[in-house]
């Protein structure tokens, strides 16, 4: 694909949240910098992925761009309109699916919901009716669109929320974790619709925690961590940018000592615990050359009485890119959680 002119230009957007913290007897203000001076251009006609762990600032960025949240400083241009000065036109330029299955009126039917939001997008009544019929066919909603939303399954609500984001046929689409509660079939269907919308010329901003999904779908991705963009580019470029050639995933009962000894093997860069449940560990080992180090890794594991259930030298994924950049796994929640209880101690 060819990179054309930007349709979204983000200029130095920062967002600081201040929250009151209640300690014993005194109140303190706590500042959290959710976005730190983010600048970014998104080209017309691309599928742009936003990746990052929970609390990294993805949602804050999207909320700022959809006018739901005012940035502390900085601005953005969307579809030729200024974010702060031409709010209504910015809103008309984008369709968004933000809160997943929330954001629908549960006492209205699917069709009534679409009609309601259609009217809020200033779509004339006859156009609206045609558009809804079109979306019902496109997304196969006909089985449930005339029932009230409260009777829907999670997946059905998600598809309706997706339909809602398409009601205006806007040139730009923001999709925040759209496939999260969908079944495999529905998710695949949604992705193919996203792709065909993109082929029709829509620009799509897509956040997901599924790396494979982003890898498959997005022309470019930005990885956000702690309010900053730490990597930006096409997935293939990002993956080749990390010097490691390969990754080895090991799953089983792996004692601490084994992990430490693996790190001492020459040619090993890092070893990160990707998952830990029921005493089983999923260890992601990033190394220069998996073929070279694999026998040594196995030696160490055997010597340390580890139980190996599964071992797999892997292709580099976007998650590995994140690990290489931050030394942390993507599934780790980086939100700063302050509860009144902690503050008192």
């Amino acid at each position: 694909m060819t990179m054309s002119d930007p349709i979204i230009a983000i200029e130095n957007i920062s967002k600081t949240f201040t929250s009151k913290e209640r300690g014993k007897g005194r109140k303190r203000k706590k500042k959290v910098e959710a976005l730190k001076d983010v600048s970014l251009e998104i080209s017309d006609g691309e599928i742009f992925g936003l990746l990052g762990p929970n609390g990294a600032g993805k949602t804050t960025l999207i909320k700022c761009l959809t006018t739901l949240l005012l940035p502390t400083s900085g601005t953005a241009w969307i579809n030729g309109f200024n974010l702060q000065k031409e709010e209504n036109k910015v809103r008309a330029s984008i369709g968004c699916m933000l809160m997943g299955e929330r954001g629908l009126y549960w006492k209205l039917t699917g069709r009534e919901n679409l009609d309601y939001f259609g009217a809020l997008y200033y779509i004339p009544k006859n156009v609206r009716r045609e558009r809804i019929d079109f979306l019902v066919d496109l997304l196969e909603l006909s089985d449930f669109v005339d029932r009230t939303v409260e009777t829907y399954s999670s997946g059905q609500k998600m598809i309706l929320a997706f339909a809602k984001s398409l009601i205006n046929d806007a040139p730009i689409l923001f999709l925040d974790e759209p496939t999260v509660t969908m079944d495999v079939h529905a998710a695949r269907n949604l992705r193919s619709i996203v792709r065909s919308l993109n082929e029709e010329g829509h620009t799509i901003i897509y956040t997901t925690h599924l790396m494979a999904e982003a890898d498959e779908l997005c022309d470019r991705v930005a990885i956000i961590d702690r309010g900053e963009i730490i990597a930006l580019g096409p997935p293939s470029e990002l993956k080749s940018s990390i010097p490691q050639e390969s990754v080895v995933d090991v799953e089983g009962v792996i004692p601490e000592s084994a992990r430490n000894r693996i790190l001492e093997i020459p040619g090993i860069r890092t070893a990160v615990v990707k998952d830990e449940t029921n005493g089983k560990t999923m260890l992601g080992i990033i190394c220069d050359n998996s073929r070279k180090v694999l026998p040594k890794i196995i030696d160490v594991l055997v010597e340390e009485d580890a139980i190996i259930e599964y071992i797999n030298p892997q292709e580099v994924t976007l998650e590995d890119v994140f690990i290489a950049k931050t030394g942390r796994s993507l599934s780790i929640d980086t939100r700063e959680i302050v509860t009144p209880k902690d503050a008192g101690k």
Partner: peptide, 15 residues
């Protein structure tokens, strides 16, 4: 102040 991005359309919105 000039727009720094392209302008396409407003979807189906008719204000």
């Amino acid at each position: 102040m000039t727009a720094k991005t392209v302008h396409k359309n407003l979807g189906l919105s008719e204000m």
